[in-house]
Design a protein around this nucleic acid. Structure first.
Length: 423
RNA sequence: GGACAGGUGGCCGAGUGGUCGAAGGCGCUCCCCUGCUAAGGGAGUAGGCGGUUUGUAGCCGUCUCGAGGGUUCGAAUCCCUUCCUGUCCGCCA
């Protein structure tokens, strides 16, 4: 959410930022609402002051036993009360209107983020490893089904499309991948492991920005909760409505959770295989930092995610998303894309974003800087470290053997208890 | 699901209709004292919104004691609704 005072300070900059977003929101409309609100607050405060003063007089008169004087003032105050109530009602309405108008407005993108409309305009920052050229490479669906360990048909019968059942060594591989990632992030990178709920309140979804604009992308339960599309929601909301001290920052959290996405509007895209599912698991990274530390934390987080791929020896490239491809809550996003030999292309496996104070302002997540009197909003960052399902896809396709078996990456062998997956 | 008991400042905790934004403690900040450490003394220390202001200093107004509504001239305190927490019972993995 945006700071109305920041918009007031520089409306032109806000408008320019909205143009980059392709949004038609403009400062003038917001400022008009705020102006009315401010005028109402002033009138309300004045009326309240008057009422308060009168009430004190009554109290004083009663205390001194002057019942007649008390009665006289009480008669006058009656109308004031009505005025105050009317103004209070108006103020609430206007504050709510301003809030509701600000909520669906996307974050302002960093100035160093390149212009562009979609993923075709993203910038490649770096590459690691050499994309494997595998003759007659099979894709992960053919490999998994041939092994008898990946079953889309039965999953569809039970749950519908975009679900999968993994069995035997592939089910175990999912666990092994997740364990490897969690161990790396907790033991080497200082993230604290969480095992959070996957059902959350609308308030939590609003805090991280999924609501109100993207309600259709999430599954909603009959008791008005939401299935979390990512552990970003739960981990980030742990600091909702809190006032942290500076020495508690940065807070680094990680969690392996099932993620649920309705994939509304994605009909026909990636319908084959495990790339785009209604349910998938992901190891998430979330950092809560001071404003001055968030840029550096963003780089650090991205490198933590990259390290996973390095240790799995999977070739990847890191992209800086252009303005048009940057998500609603983010100021700047790095995508990490892993090489898939069967598709002969890089596919997104992680997305690391700095939202700065955007989510913190929605959640009232603040900290008090050392020696500072006023609290300030924290900065929140989130990234995948990594998507487990897509990591499995990458392993199957990159480690496939001519006979259809899958070599197990070195770092996963202790967790799998074997060096090869075969039928 | 049923029955009780609670939700107060960064934290703990007192406060049942009038000057209470709120005792006390802890924590924190500054000062004094103590030749280190520990201890001691004094002062200060909530947030939001608005105004004033060159100003994120100060000052002024106002709101906020889980949330929302009500009673009252006046509510942390009384009433209603709701959410959450604790305990017991039921159910259950």
């Amino acid at each position: 959410m945006h700071d109305i005072r920041a918009i007031k300070d520089d409306p032109a900059a806000f408008d320019a930022a909205m143009v980059r977003r392709g949004s038609d929101v403009r400062a003038s409309n917001l400022l008009a609402i705020d102006e009315k609100r401010v005028a109402t607050v002033k009138a309300m405060n004045d009326a309240q002051a008057e009422q308060k003063a009168a009430s004190k007089k009554i109290g004083a008169a009663k205390a001194s036993g002057d019942e007649a004087a008390a009665q006289a003032v009480m008669a006058q105050v009656g109308q004031l009360k009505e005025t105050v109530q009317t103004l209070e009602q108006q103020e609430r309405t206007l504050a709510a209107k301003l809030h509701d108008t600000l909520l669906p407005i996307p974050n302002i993108i960093d100035t160093d983020v390149p212009e562009g409309a979609d993923e075709n305009d993203n910038t490649e920052l770096r590459r690691w490893g050499t994309p494997n050229e595998i003759a007659e490479a099979k894709d992960h669906v053919d490999l998994g089904e041939a092994l008898g360990m990946m079953d889309f048909e039965t999953a569809a019968k039970i749950a519908g499309s975009r679900f999968v059942i993994l069995k035997k060594d592939l089910a175990k591989l999912e666990r092994a991948i997740a364990s490897f990632m969690l161990n790396l992030h907790t033991e080497e990178f200082g993230y604290e492991e969480f095992l959070p709920p996957v059902l959350v309140s609308p308030e939590a979804m609003t805090g991280t920005g999924q609501l109100p604009k993207f309600e259709d992308d999430a599954f909603k339960t009959t008791d008005h909760r939401f299935m979390t599309p990512t552990a970003e929601v739960t981990l980030t909301n742990t600091v909702r409505d809190t006032l942290l001290s500076e020495d508690e920052l940065p807070k680094r959290m990680t969690a392996w959770t099932q993620c649920f996405r309705a994939e509304a509007g994605s009909a026909g895209r990636d319908t084959r295989g495990m790339i785009r599912m209604h349910q998938f698991s992901k190891v998430e990274l979330v950092s809560i930092t001071t404003p001055k530390a968030s840029d550096e934390e963003h780089e650090r987080m991205t490198s933590c995610a990259e390290e996973v791929l390095k240790r799995l020896d999977l070739p990847y490239r890191t992209m800086l998303l252009c303005a048009g491809d940057t998500g609603f809550s983010a100021t700047k996003t790095y995508d990490i894309e892993v090489w898939l030999p069967a598709q002969k292309q890089f596919r997104e496996i992680s997305s690391c974003s700095n939202t700065r104070a955007f989510q913190a302002r929605r959640m009232q997540a603040r900290y008090r800087a050392e020696g500072q009197k006023k609290p300030d909003f924290v900065h929140t960052l989130n990234g995948s470290g990594l998507a487990v399902g897509r990591t499995m896809v990458a392993i199957l396709e990159n480690y496939q053997q001519p006979d259809g078996s899958i070599a197990v990456p070195d770092v996963l062998q202790p967790l799998m208890g074997k060096a090869k997956i075969e039928a």
